[in-house]
Simulated scan of single mutants.
Amino acid sequence: MRVLRTLLILVVLFGGLFIAADRVALYFAEDQVASRIKASQGLTSDPEVTIKGFPFLTQVARTTLDDVEISLDGVSASAGGEAVRVTEVRAELKDVTFDSTFSKATAGSATGSARISYADLTASAPKGATVGYAGTERAAENQVKLSGPMGEVLAGAGISVPGPFKALLDGKTLTAYSTVSLVDGDTVRLRAASLPTLYVPGAEERMRKAVDYDLKIDGLPSSIQLDKVTTTDTGLSFAGTGTDVSLSG
């Protein structure tokens, strides 16, 4: 009985030491993966990395991680030199393999998602205009609403209003609906479905140039291609997939 008790104590002891060593190795690995992703993607802050599966050390022994989740900050979109914040960036990597020196790693497959809020999307709109939810029917067509005092929006778009026409703009609101689409897996395209009467000769063409623009999303893993955009009541949501995603710095 004493021998059995001693064996049980040793099993618990070594089991606890193994678990402790496994967790220490896991935290170290998560930190290293975060550093490599930061370097390879040019991020301004460390991503949050979670390596799933237990025990971790057995995954290391076969140089393959089953499932890795990544949360990214410091991701932005750019339009005409203006930066637009991208939030809630997530990536899930499957079958991550690495070499014996741990200097190179590749995910067999990946899924990613991101979001741009209407408040952040407004930063890329003409001065004086806001971008918001267009309602259930138009959202189903992937449209957003751009609106604002007509005089301010015209001025924000760089459109000079001749004196005789200024009185026509008093109290009037410009409302336009833009269709959102994806181009080349990393670019969000907004195109006005129609524009209201602007009362100023030649203004419609110039306004269209101001409200039709592309947002290029920078900072996502290069092998993740966005392939779906959805217009929600809080902003734009994106999803994408990728294969053979490099995590090397």
Rank of each mutant, 00 (worst) to 15 (best):
S124E: 12
G74L: 12
S113K: 12
Q59V: 06
G242W: 00
P221M: 01
G128C: 10
L226C: 09
A157H: 10
T230Q: 04
R138H: 08
A110I: 06
G81N: 13
F56N: 01
M150G: 08
S181F: 04
L93P: 05
A110E: 03
D233L: 02
D99P: 11
R191P: 05
T187K: 08
Y118T: 14
A29M: 00
V131Y: 12
M207Q: 03
A61T: 10
I51A: 00
S181T: 15
E69Q: 10
I70F: 03
P55L: 02
S78Q: 12
R85V: 11
T130K: 13
D186C: 04
L17D: 03
P162L: 04
V183P: 01
L7W: 07
Y213T: 04
F238C: 08
A119P: 13
T243P: 07
V84N: 13
E48L: 09
D66Y: 06
A105C: 05
K94M: 03
V12I: 15
F165N: 12
T234P: 13
R191Q: 12
G163H: 03
A79C: 07
D120H: 08
S78N: 11
Y133D: 15
P47C: 02
V68I: 09
T122G: 15
V153H: 01
R2P: 11
T50H: 02
G53R: 06
T101P: 03
V144G: 13
K127Y: 10
A203H: 06
S237K: 11
A125R: 09
T64W: 00
L220R: 04
F14I: 12
L57T: 14
A239K: 09
T187Y: 00
I51E: 00
D227Y: 00
R5P: 11
L4D: 00
G132F: 02
V12W: 02
V33I: 13
R208S: 11
D67H: 11
L247M: 12
L65G: 04
L7N: 03
D212M: 06
L146W: 07
G202I: 12
T173R: 12
G74A: 10
T173C: 15
L65Y: 02
G80N: 10
E82K: 09
A83E: 14
G185E: 03
T6I: 13
L57Y: 06
P164Y: 08
P164E: 08
T6C: 07
D212A: 05
V144S: 10
T231D: 05
E137R: 07
R5T: 15
A20L: 13
S113Q: 12
V96N: 04
R208K: 11
E88V: 08
D120F: 05
T136V: 09
K38M: 11
L169A: 03
Q32C: 01
L195Y: 02
R85H: 10
R85F: 02
V211R: 05
K145L: 15
P162K: 03
R115S: 14
G42Y: 00
G80L: 06
T197H: 10
G15A: 05
Y118M: 13
I9L: 15
G80W: 05
